[in-house]
Amino acid sequence: MSEINELYQDLILDHTKKPRNFEVLEGASRHVEGYNPLCGDRYTIYVRMEGDVIRDVSFQGSGCAISKSSASMMTTIVKGKTKCEAEAIFENFHKMITGQSGVDKNKIGKLEVFHGVSEFPVRVKCASLAWHTLKAALGGEEKTITTE
């Protein structure tokens, strides 16, 4: 498979074309905007917390295939997880897309489809935008987040 096809895997393209949880979340307890002005990628992540648990999560916005599919897949994965669990998933994911060692392959799950991003360093900021935004929302931040 070429590096391009490694990057744009079917599951990624599927989430780009049919993003999941792509809506404003009614009754959201927090929402934070993530914006990369150089690319124009802009998303708002909505979360509804119950204590420490992400009871519901959604997103809105627009951007490239990598950023959108990453946001979409993230919402499907972190729903029902605790803040700590979600942060651990992000940490593992971030190691993988930046090509670092120590990725826990058993815990990466379907996020594995983003492994090709590590070959495209300028696209790391696309794949991580939604995650950084979620992390900010979980941490109670309200200002706009950027990964540029």
């Binding site: 590096e3 391009i4 124009g40």
Partner: peptide, 22 residues
């Protein structure tokens, strides 16, 4: 069909240097 940054990445892999952005 695709966002400018995705186009930029694919064109780059074909050896075509363009700029994608604002």
């Amino acid at each position: 069909a695709a966002h400018p940054h995705d186009i930029g990445t694919i064109l780059d892999q074909e050896g075509v240097a363009i700029r994608a952005g604002h």
